[in-house]
Structures are given as C-alpha cells and as structure tokens.
Design a protein around this nucleic acid. Sequence first.
DNA 1: TATGAATGAGAATTCATTCAT
DNA 2: GATGAATGAATTCTCATTCAT
Lengths: 193, 193, 193, 193
Amino acid sequence: MNKRSGEESKRNIIAAAIQVFADYGYDNASMRMIAQAAGVSVGTLYLHFKNKDDLYLTITKEWIDDLNELTNRALDRIDDPRTAITVFITISIDYTREHREMILLQGRKFGRCLGLEQKQQFFRKRRQLLTDIVQRGVTEGVFRSDDPAETARIIFNVLRGFIFSMLIDEEALFRAEACVDLVLNGLRRRNNG
Amino acid sequence: MNKRSGEESKRNIIAAAIQVFADYGYDNASMRMIAQAAGVSVGTLYLHFKNKDDLYLTITKEWIDDLNELTNRALDRIDDPRTAITVFITISIDYTREHREMILLQGRKFGRCLGLEQKQQFFRKRRQLLTDIVQRGVTEGVFRSDDPAETARIIFNVLRGFIFSMLIDEEALFRAEACVDLVLNGLRRRNNG
Amino acid sequence: MNKRSGEESKRNIIAAAIQVFADYGYDNASMRMIAQAAGVSVGTLYLHFKNKDDLYLTITKEWIDDLNELTNRALDRIDDPRTAITVFITISIDYTREHREMILLQGRKFGRCLGLEQKQQFFRKRRQLLTDIVQRGVTEGVFRSDDPAETARIIFNVLRGFIFSMLIDEEALFRAEACVDLVLNGLRRRNNG
Amino acid sequence: MNKRSGEESKRNIIAAAIQVFADYGYDNASMRMIAQAAGVSVGTLYLHFKNKDDLYLTITKEWIDDLNELTNRALDRIDDPRTAITVFITISIDYTREHREMILLQGRKFGRCLGLEQKQQFFRKRRQLLTDIVQRGVTEGVFRSDDPAETARIIFNVLRGFIFSMLIDEEALFRAEACVDLVLNGLRRRNNG
DNA sequence: TATGAATGAGAATTCATTCAT
DNA sequence: GATGAATGAATTCTCATTCAT
C-alpha cells in the first residue's frame, strides 16, 4: 500500500486516465485499464472520482479551462484582425499537436453526450471569438465577409477536422501557416472582387 | 416468420444496423438492438455476418463505394477547377447532411481502428482528387498554391469537421456556398498578391 | 447448454430464487447464488428478469395472488363471524408454516421498500377482510368491539409476528387453535361485561 | 481533530451507528456512513470495534440490557396479573414507538443470524416473564388458559408484529389499550365459559 | 434459413478492512 | 488515539457469440 497524499494520487490518476481515454476512447477504456496505468487498484479510482463519468468530466473541464486561458492570454493585446486570426489558428493547431488526447473534448457519447452543456458552451465561446475577429476585420475594411458568424464556423470546422485527423488519419494533417495563408487570402478584401 | 431470400434479409439487416450504429455509435449499439430493429432474431445476424465487426465493415464498405461513385460521376465532365471545387464541396456537405449516419465512416475504435486500411485508402483517394483539382487550377493560372497537396488537406479537414459537427454540435454547421466562397477566394490568384 | 423452453426455465429460476431469498434475505442473496441454485449461468437470469428487483417482485406478486385466492375461496360461503375468524387465522398460520419463504413478502429494504405499494395494498386488503368480519360479528351481536378496524389490526399483527418467528425464532411459534381460542374469547360479548 | 476520551468516542459512535443501522438496515449501512454520521474517520471505528458485526452486537447487547432493566423495574412490585399484563404490553408498545431503531434487535442475517444465541435468550426470557404472569393469573383463578406458555407466545407475537409494522407498515399500528383490552378479555375466566 | 435460450467474460461499482502516517 | 488512502473481493448487470431445435 503505497501511501501518497490525496491530491498527488488524484493527479496521477488523471494523467493515466488521459492517456487511456485518448488511446481507447471513452467506451473502450475500462476502469481497470486506467487503474493499471495509474498503478493503483480499481477501488482507489472511486476514492477520488464518483464514477467513470466524473473522471472523464474532470479531465475535459481541465482542458477547457486550460485552452480558454491560453487563448485569452494570447489574444489579449492583439488588435490587428489578421494577426488575431493567425494567432488563433496557430495556437489551436499547436495545442492539438501537443495534446493529441484533447480529442476527448470532442467525444461523443451518442445518446447522451457526456458533459454536453459544458462543452457546447466552450465551443460556442470559441466561435464567438472568431466571429468577433472577423467582424472587426470587416469593420476596419481589411476583411470581406457577408456573414462573419458563418465564416467563423467554417474556420472553426477546419480546426475541428484537424483534431480528428490527429487521431484517425495523420496523413491528413496540415501546417498552421498553410491554413492561415488560405484563410487570410480567402478573407481578403479586393478592389476588383 | 416471414421467409425472405437471403439477400433481401441481408439488406434489411444492413439498413437497420446503419440506423442503430448511427444513433448509438459502434460501442453502444448491441447486436440485440440491431436484430430488434431489423425484426429478426440475434442468430440471424450471425447467419449473414461473421460478427459485429464484419457487419460494421460491410456497411462502411458500402458507403465508400457509394460515395466514390457519386463523386466520380459528378466530377466526370467538369474541367473548370473552380467548378470542380464547388461541386466537390457541395456534394460532400449535402451528402453529409442527408446521411448523418456517415459519421460511422470516421469511426474510431481507438486502439485498433476497425477497417482502418480500407478507410485510409478512401480518404487518401479523396484528398488526391482535391489535390488534382488544385494542381490543375494552378497550372491553368486561376489558382494560387505553394503546395496543392497541403491545400487539399485543409479543404478536406473543413469537410471532416463538418461531419463531426453534424453529430456533436449542430450549431457549428455552415452552408456549402459560404464555404465554397471562402475557399475559392482563398485560392484565387491575384495581381497584387 | 441445456436447452429448455423459456417458461420452464423461468419457473426453475423462480423456484431457486425463492429458496435463496428465503435462506439469505434479499440483500445477502446474490444473483450468482441464485444462478447456481437454478443450475444456470448468471446471464440467463437476466434473460428472464430485467434485474434483481424484478425477480424479487415477480416472486412476491405470485404469493400475493396465491394467498388472495386461497383466502377468498376459503371465506366464500362462510357467514358465521366466529367461523370466519377461525378460518382466516388458521389459513394464515398454515400457509406461513408451509411457505416459510413467504417472509419475503414482509421484506423491508429500508430506504425504499421494494414493491411497497403493491404489498401495502395487499396488507390493507387483508386487514379490511378482518375488519369486515369483526364488524359483522358486532352487528350480529356475537362480538364486542369498540373499533373493529383496531381489533383487526391487532389480529393482523399476531399473524405478522408469526411470520417473523418462523424465520428468526421458531421457539416462539404457536398453534393456530390456541390463537383462535384467545381471540374469539377476547371478542366475545358477555352479559356481565 | 477533537480529542476525546476513548469511552466518549465510543458512545458517540454507537449513537451514530444506531441511527444509521435503523435507517438503512444492517446490510445497507456502510462503515463509511456510520463514520460520517459519528464525525470520525473510518479507521476510528476499528479502533473501538473489531469489525462491523462487533459494532452491531454491541448495540443489540445494550438494548437487551436496557429493555430488561426497564421491564424488570416496571413489573417489580406488581402482583395483580391483570395489571402485570397491562404493564408489559404497554411498556413494549411504548418503547417500540419511541425506539423505532429497536427493530434491529429482531434483525435477521438469514443464513447465520448475528448474535442469534444472545437474542434468543432475551426473547426466551421475555416469553418466560409472560408465561409466569399468565400462570399466576390461572392459579389465582382470574385467568383461564390451557397452556400458559402458548398463551404467552401469542401475546409475544402481537408485540413482535408491532415492531415490524413500525418499520414496514405504519398503517397497521394499534393502540396499546386496545390490545390490552382484547388480551385481557381473551384471558378472562368466565362462568359460562 | 431462422430462432432465441444459454453462456462466460468482462464492465462499473461498493465496501469491509488494513495500515503508514 | 486518530486519520483516510489504499486494497481486493464481491456485487449487479451487459453483451458478443454459440448452438440445439
């Protein structure tokens, strides 16, 4: 019985769970696998988390907070819409590359999606951020867009596609710069357009 | 019980399985549910399919063939790269909207993804199609792209993102035209570019 | 795999479950024990019953129906209140002696008592029967009772006590006739009373 | 943590355990719940009691002693058998009403009933008390009974029924006086009997 | 072909008990 | 004395798969 502090043990379990969930998906990851990966007994899992859902939600909540903060900090002092788009896309792609496990955030549990409310709010917030940037660009006359929200959704979906490609289809991954280039060009206002 | 020819029964099972898989996901769809939806006994499922994986793979194979044919037919006589891009994106979005179940194609069984080889080949083929179109556009001087394959991957990922949005986040869906507009503008060669 | 008809198998499981529940109580009887006693696998239990509660409730429902019918038939043509009391007590005691397992009917699951509604209705019906008999006796001038319902409850509780004694304290069991004697004497109207 | 003397802590745990056992039953009461209710850690429970059974037995022993003393004191100077019966029944009913938890005394752990020997002795003693009273009444010519022990068992079972009704079926409860009335009338010797 | 009863392995979860601190 | 993290065995329940009919 290797005694640790409660918090230490909890972090340890979370780290293990992230790996296992990411490797096998929510459904195929069993509590036994997670326990094994964390080097603890199954019972210990339930000492720190009410159940499998709770463990999963704790993890996703961390990511959401993490990404929110990272994004906010990065966009904090950026006024130029072109730079803002560049930063948003680059951060998203980089973060996804570094945290392949983040796919879990997108995780669907078909019937009832686990923590759906929380996630949708997060997605909504990110799309709003993009919408604001595009809108600003339009106002400033550097972007062209009939419908900034629609444009934001499209950009958002490239990034969502990237997340899944990370997991199921690495050949489909692209460089952030290439994406920025295409998008900025697509948004660009032109005289003879 | 209603005697049917073997083939008829098989079609019937596949139709039911598509629905159930699409509604609940591979893991949460049980053979019992599929049997019930098809109005046959569990044993009958195994008469036509070796096992659950086999049933799933049969379905995905059908889709791949279906989509391949649909796409090929649509692009058959189109020479203009701009029209080709427009058609490819529109077909993909429309098909996804009509066949929400197609998400299954992206289906990940994390550890070992079921039928991965087959799917990856399909994805590769679609990206190649896009690459060819972009390449042609560049050659003809209407598109601008440093790396057509990279550009193709980006477009491919918007569409992949759309598929997942269909399932987990309907608010994120966008119109095909808006996407075409952004992409074509992004690809457009410009004098002062 | 010993194939039986569905109904045959179900009866077999019920018989085993009655024994196991009676011997160990609801909580201490495990599905594994019941399966073993029935000579089937655990999975088979769930083929016939939705869950443990369902199995338990099926059993209690049978008893309730059984006892109701038995009692109704016995009291059908009896007009004399003294005979009716005698029959009611005798039947109850005899049935309990023969079906020691019937204790399950009383079964408490503390927080939420399983099938409480159903049982309470059954108990209520039996008390009502007793109340009617006593009331009749009073009306006919052979019984004496300030409050027939209260009297009925007391008699009802002797019988309930008997059921528990069957299980936990056989030394406390008594003969039906002795009980009838005491009760009838207690109910008897007297001139100098 | 609040340092207490060992004995004080023990009393505290017992009080909490009584509540929890009474609310949830032996099986459904967990050591964690008891610890929580007592405001101590799980480990502390095992400092004072060898295990769950030990804790339970300690409690039942207390009750047995408590009830024995209460009953003895009440019957101490009562000579009249009629009064004695009245007192015994009234005390039993009242005590049960006030200590709903006392149901635990009847507690069955089916297979091997916890502390069975101890309890049976207690029940035996109480029945003996009743038997003595009835016997005395018969000797003095105020009661009529072929078999005082049998009569005692019947009275004992009304009271046992009452205890269970307290828990599972409050509608079945009755007033002590009504019971005394029926029993005394039932015991009464009559001229024309 | 078709059925559906039966299986057994494995899933999530609970809990009495132990023991390092 | 007191704590509470850790354990492991047991519990309920699910499900892909098999096979006698």
